[in-house]
Write a protein that binds this DNA or RNA. Sequence first.
DNA 1: GCCAACGTTGGC
DNA 2: GCCAACGTTGGC
Length: 150
Amino acid sequence: MASWLFKSEPDVFSIHDLEKRRREPWNGVRNYQARNWLRDSVQEGDEIFFYHSSCPEPGIYGLMRCSRTGHADASQFDAGSEFYEPAAKLEAPRWFQVEVEFVERWKKPLLLPQLKTCEALKELALVRPGNRLSIMPVSDAEAAVIKGLR
DNA sequence: GCCAACGTTGGC
DNA sequence: GCCAACGTTGGC
């Protein structure tokens, strides 16, 4: 079982939203590196840290789990969606989504400054300068450290 | 709101 | 295939 970290702007979709809805497609990812992980690597049962970005207190707010592996992101075919991708073909989807399910919301989030000062997490893509990935792998060792910090 | 970093686009 | 311009991300 692998671990991942997914970012979302809480104004758009937060851990509270997922807690209410329990399961949700993780769609709208429009970055090729992230797409490749969604398509090829994220497996059912993988644990995923839920990170809130672009908000007053960025950080990890809880845990979710992959409940369905990569499949075509439906929003690419929806002309009314902000994620519409005219060049995508049904038989050759360009963008992928996974389904996630709620696991737990942390009473106390693990905020970015804590993550940044942790020596054992200095290789984590999240805290590397200029990182812009919305989806990134987390090693087993890093996942253990994150859970230990909480 | 600012701005650094970086991915993407498009002209050549 | 290079690379400048542009747009977006995301912390502060």
